[in-house]
Amino acid sequence: MNIWERILQIDRRYIFLLIGISGAIPIIMSFSLPTFVTPEVRGVYNAIDALPEGAMVLVSFDYEPSAMPEMDPMAKAILRHIFGRGLKVVGVTLIPYGTGIGEELFVAMEREFNLKQGVDYDFLGYKPGYQAVVLGLGQDLKGSFPKNFYEQDTRTVPILKDINSLRDFDYMMWLHDDAYGGYGWIIYGRQNYGIDIGSGCTAILATGMYPFLQAEQVTGIVGGLKGAAEYEKLMGYTGSARLGMVAQSSIHVMIIGLILLGNIAFILSKRKPKKEPSG
């Protein structure tokens, strides 16, 4: 058995080890690559930056725990931007799991910015129905959410005093890992109630969001870990997204390298392995 044949039949645990190491080292060493900010991420940043002080931002946490590694760094960067500018946030979610995610982020922000629930932010929680919820919020916010996530009467929450429908918000940040309700926020929220929307989504979904950007139905797109890294760059800090980007590139290059190595070894060994893929 020559060296190439050995490489071909390498124990897959060595591959696991390589992947683990190539991901961990950049994070341990806090490597960071230069990040270039794309116009679609700047579109979200500028829209939030242009809001007057005390403006109201609606944030919809429409992603599941499985998307947290991609979405949480992004959500944090954007929320830091919003709260850092002294804007007020009302959170909502169209999916059941979103409640846990939204609550956790608000708790983290509360600590960081010394916020007060009900005054600086409020979380409406979850209600089933996707588009129906968007339409309900558009017509009568307090009617469709009589109680917020903390079981308080929405009519008595100070931050919601002048908020009666989607029209009363100055901006909306849609954080999502799927096209829940067939893009309900855009189709109903944007078109019926004229709310400006920024989209923050997973890398896989980002491709599908571009038509909305071209049609100017979203002001910008923050896509996946890469988008989050760009946002961190705009905010001027190196968070988990920028560290993660380096780690991701390193794993990515490692996988590509492994595939190339496998093929080189295959050609050089001229030996047919047992398993054939079927189609």
């Binding site: 961990a24 994070i27 993660g244 794993i251």
Partner: peptide
């Protein structure tokens, strides 16, 4: 591939 990598990054982070 990219999406799967980011899940691992989340854990390593």
């Amino acid at each position: 591939v990219m999406g799967r990598e980011s899940i691992l990054i989340g854990r390593l982070n």
